[in-house]
């Protein structure tokens, strides 16, 4: 299945944000949700089909114009499944462009790597100077009591024209050593949260196997590893809530 979706958020000139484009197709269906008051617009991804399955090629484009405030969530976890044997890896590519003074918060439910899946998630985020992002990705390695499928995530976040954070993570039978003590240590869940832009919090240890780290550029990364997703949420969710209360960057 090939599908594309696109969200374009713009400042409405009255302190709010409007959606100039909100276009999706199954399985990337989009719904505007939440109150119509306040400066922030929330869009939910509503899975329109099972998957992604092997052979799927999905693309989501996000664009936030100057001063716009956009939050994207999903109603349910994304479950990567095996699909047709022999088909190419399923692929979800996300591209986001965030203008000066804009804020994009990407806060989806986890990606679950079901046994036998072969999935690649490619994310490219370009933030202009003065823009802000909060970019969350959680991954669960296998459903309950099953081995993990193969998932490869590939993330680049650029800020003000320079690469701020570049990260790949491979889990599953084709990734040697992924469950060894250097990578996930047998844990089944991992989450990451990148904060980029002004008004960053202080670095901190977050308890358990989790830390909020200051990047070399203007941003931070919180990483959490847990036996299940609850431990990841316990470490990362509070950072998403705190960030929500911050005023829009000037």
């Amino acid at each position: 299945m090939r599908a594309g979706a696109r969200i374009v958020a713009e400042a409405d000139g009255r302190g709010g944000t409007r959606l100039a484009v909100l276009r999706g197709e199954s399985p990337l269906l989009l719904r505007r949700t939440g109150p119509r008051t306040g400066g922030d617009v929330t869009v939910h991804l509503v899975g329109g089909a099972a998957g992604p399955l092997r052979g799927d090629d999905l693309r989501l484009d996000l664009e936030a114009g100057p001063g716009a405030r956009l939050t994207v969530r999903s109603v349910a976890a994304q479950l990567a499944l095996p699909g047709r044997p022999g088909a190419p890896a399923s692929r979800l590519e996300i591209r986001a462009v965030v203008a000066a003074g804009a804020t994009v918060r990407w806060l989806p439910e986890p990606l679950i790597a079901a046994a036998g899946c072969d999935h690649r998630a490619v994310t490219r985020v370009e933030v202009e100077a003065g823009g802000a992002v909060l970019w969350r990705d959680d991954l669960v390695c296998g459903r309950h009591d099953e081995p993990s499928g193969d998932v490869h995530t590939d993330l680049i976040i650029r800020y003000a024209g320079s690469t701020l954070h570049r990260h790949e993570l491979a889990v599953g039978p084709r990734a040697p050593g992924w469950s060894g003590a250097a990578v996930l240590g047998g844990a089944r869940a991992v989450g990451s949260l990148v904060l980029a832009g002004p008004d960053l919090p202080e670095a901190a240890l977050l308890g358990g196997d989790a830390a909020l780290m200051t990047l070399a550029g203007p941003g931070m990364l919180a990483t959490a590893v847990g036996q299940d997703i609850r431990q990841v949420r316990a470490a990362l969710d509070p950072l998403c809530v705190e960030r929500q209360r911050l005023p829009a960057p000037a």
Binding site: D154, H167, L169, A182, A210, A211
Partner: peptide, 15 residues
């Protein structure tokens, strides 16, 4: 260029 990360090495180094 490759960017393969190891979350526990990062977290462990901070601890």
């Amino acid at each position: 260029l490759p960017a393969a990360g190891a979350p526990l090495l990062d977290i462990g180094a901070e601890l």
